[in-house]
Design a binder for these strands. Structure first.
Lengths: 192, 192
DNA sequence: AGTCGATGGGACGTTGATGTCTCAAATGGG
DNA sequence: CCCATTTGAGACATCAACGTCCCATCGACT
């Protein structure tokens, strides 16, 4: 009747399975349930005991991604200091989850928007609000809408995550490449 | 047995089928062969007479995308005038094919890189060379590698195409949003 | 040692997409 | 007006992935 130890072990396993599934699906988004199970070192039956099906797995992955994204937003402290420093801290904090986020974004795109997880709306709103505050404080251009800047940030995170995986960008340059391009742009100006 | 819906449209050119397939797969990348056929206004059998299978269809779509991408590069005249003007012309020229390009990029990502169409390498090389020339002429920052700028351009094109499709960005702002962000960045500086 | 629960492997049946085939009907040219 | 070609629709087999189930095995706790 020792439910305590039993439950804790289960959740740990579930967490590990989720991590390895994220790592695999990040690289191969069409991976089979069997491949996911093998990658986690468990049998397909056990995988189905943890997650009712593929939808449930992707759903759990979605929750995990949203949670990590939100945690990155929280720990970054977007509003402390300049917009640039806040964004730099955020991108650095979100880097470990970048691949997962990229996977979830494309997964969401081909999902016929019935019941989208409202967590995305909350995150979008936080990021867009960050850019809007930057505009109000005169740090961010006003001719680029917060919605577009948010979308562009996601796109750059996904592109850079893929470039890192392909070896075209060094992992340590991830935050620099994204923030410098998003904020500073590629144009070489006199004062820089 | 008069099928009223189909009498009107006679021999549909392979080109037209490709166009409608591109338009559909851009929105729903997992569309069925049957859906592709219906979207083109033809039967599934006829679709198979034009393209041996799904792989052949995607391959033809790939060739079409590469061709349009290259045509955009040619008509834009990247090297005429400043890098900014060249990029602006190119993004405007590539806008009609942006959705297709986005589809092909993600399709290529989940493709286990066996025999990648070498057309992509050629296009990547041209774009990267454009950025490199901009660096040599002092117009482009040298701390952002041409490979990353190329990747970022693709990412921004895909993100903006999706944002336009979702109504978050006006179609007429497509070139402006991309070029301004990629070259100028979001930071509000004094001289701007 | 004995028991209980979890695991993994495998064997199902089901589903959805694919590719191939045939045939009737429609089209267009001669 | 007739005939060759093309088309759409449907039937059919195939295949891969999914989801479910069973059972032998293993590990942990008593």
């Amino acid at each position: 009747m020792s439910q305590m130890g039993y439950c804790r072990l289960m959740t740990l396993d579930r967490e590990q399975v989720l991590r390895s599934a994220a790592a695999l699906l990040t690289r191969k988004s069409t991976a089979t349930m069997d491949e996911v199970a093998r990658a986690a070192g468990i049998g397909r039956a056990t995988l189905h005991r943890h997650f009712a099906g593929r939808d449930a797995l992707v759903g759990a992955l979605e929750d995990l991604g949203i949670q990590e994204f939100e945690a990155a937003l929280d720990t970054a402290g977007l509003d402390e200091g300049s917009a640039e420093d806040g964004l730099r801290r955020f991108v650095a904090a979100v880097q470990p989850a970048a691949g997962l986020l990229s996977f979830l974004v494309t997964e969401n795109q081909l999902f016929e928007g019935d019941d989208v997880n409202e967590g995305w709306n909350r995150l979008d709103a936080r990021v867009a609000a960050f850019f809007r505050r930057g505009q109000e404080r005169g740090e961010i251009r006003i001719d680029l809408t917060p919605a577009w800047l948010t979308e562009a940030l996601y796109g750059l995170i996904g592109s850079c995550a893929w470039a890192v995986q392909d070896g075209r960008v060094a992992a340590q340059d991830f935050p620099y490449m994204i923030v410098e391009l998003l904020l500073g742009g590629a144009r070489r100006s006199v004062e820089k």
